[in-house]
Amino acid sequence: MEIIQGILIIALAFWMVLDQQGFVITTWFPAIIGMIAGIIMGDMTTAMIIAGTFQLMALGVANIGGSSVPNYGLATLVGIYVAIRTTHDVEHAKAVALAVGVPVGMLGIQLDVLGKLLNSYVSHAAQKALNLGKFKKMERIFWLGPLIFGLTTALPTALCVLFGDKLVRLILDVVPKWFTDGLSIAGSMLPVVGIALLLQFMPVKKYLTMLLIGFVVSAYLKLPILGIAILGFAFAYYYFTQNMKKTPAAATAGAASTDALDEGDDFDE
């Protein structure tokens, strides 16, 4: 029974990252992961209390724009497993889950950065296979992507299931702190590449005003992103209604596409 539970927990760890980044059904949000882990471990109440704690910690932590965030789902899963294995007292279980889960979840940042780096090579290899006309091979190469990401969560989970939390702590102890810190820092700097790439394709020069407004409202006024989105929508709505009146709807789709292409060149210089 314990072996089956261990295997199911590792399988769930493998699946949850793939689902979060793909189908978005079970996700890796603590509440849902905790519920499934509760079913596996046969202790829904303890599992949900731990999951609820992590879920509220994770609120507002969104991995958007290619950013790496602490994996609270991984923290929840490992926390629930170790806690239910070691104690039957709910308050004690919560403490154990936090003590084990948080460092593992933090390790998730480094592994996520590593996974995204490795996937550059997957993309290159697949494109090479395509240009050689090996279409079947290309399809197979793509599957390395999910495999890598699945392992980024399944491996730490497997280590925790097999050795408890000691090994994770050992790894975090052996690797120099400046190195793990450095990777965490890189993880919080790298979204800049995605943002800068996205900006290459957008009319930045034309609408620099909007970029600045968004920045100021977020950096100085600390308005949550949703409020800023509504503000952005207000500007967009105004522009849209004002211009819809003027524009005659005579042009063709072809003209619209070339316009978009011209713009692309404009701010690409």
């Binding site: 950013s67 968004g214 920045f215 977020s218 005579a250």
Partner: peptide, 27 residues
Amino acid sequence: GDKLNVFTEAASIMGLTVIGALIPSVV
């Protein structure tokens, strides 16, 4: 047709506002 351009522009306005906010909140 041409209105799509207006729509794309309007969406760019909203998009850039959000991206401007992403810089301090994500990086």
